[in-house]
Amino acid sequence: MIPRLVLAALVLGSLAALESPLAAQVQMPFLMGGSDGISVSGAGELSARPNLVEIDLHVAGKAELTGDALVKYRDAKKRVLEALDKLKLKGLSSDELGLTISAGTGVEQQQRMMNGMPQAPSKTQIEVSCTLRVRLKDVRDQPPEELIKTVGKLIDVAQDSGVTIGPSPAQVMMNMRFGNYTNNTAPVRFVVSDLTELREKAYELAVADARSRAGRLAKLNQVKLGRALSVQEISVAGEQVLTNRIPGTVQSAEPVLQDEDDTPRITSSALASIPVQVKLMVRFAIVAPEPATAQQ
């Protein structure tokens, strides 16, 4: 039992250290395969304006007859797509994600259920629905006011078409009911999707930062810094979902519905420069002191 407890404590400790990189500078080495050398974290951060805007629309058709539900779904999707097309916005595209056919009761029945009320006789309702993800590309160079205006147009058109912005009303109600107040339901997301080059730069900055920190420690300890023995990524922009720490940034327990395209990206619910950050843990060797004493 004891070894297991120790192991658990170590794991928890390591997770806590992940949340606090500075504190990890002295605690992390055992994770890096040895205790020799100087272990430091290094962070590299750039910021970039979003180059993509995404809006999720809930498109649904609900009816007792599946045929009716399909017609309603077909027309709802058609009307919103036609309305979006009429905007003739450059870089606008849309994808249908997660088409589902579900059966259940109406919102009214769900309310009754949750309140322990007797169920009224009701017919099963079939809902055909999908998330329609609307994308507006190449927006980095647009002035914020203009971009917000364009996003407003998209939202207006969607609302005029009668579709729901964000998740379905039933999902919102369930979220509220069960205290799931995470704001991953933000219907409009600002995305940095061209991460590769930015991330390379962030890596360079992180490595330089780590070497600088390690150099400082070596100097203070009157040792000479050697080569890097090991490097570990603590966090890399775009590889962990939604970890940005700026006000209004989406902090999600659950990922939003993912695209088939798994290109690294960073998402924010706020229109602002988005940090592209890389954090590394680097262990440097300590160059052994001159063997002068031994020769004497």
Binding site: G61, D160, G162
Partner: peptide, 20 residues
């Protein structure tokens, strides 16, 4: 909650439009 049109001949749902 939505506008719908049904065929008087076939009883089919011809179209549905969700308005605000």
């Amino acid at each position: 909650e939505e506008l719908t049109a049904y065929s008087l001949k076939t009883k089919e749902l011809l179209w549905a439009t969700q308005l605000p």
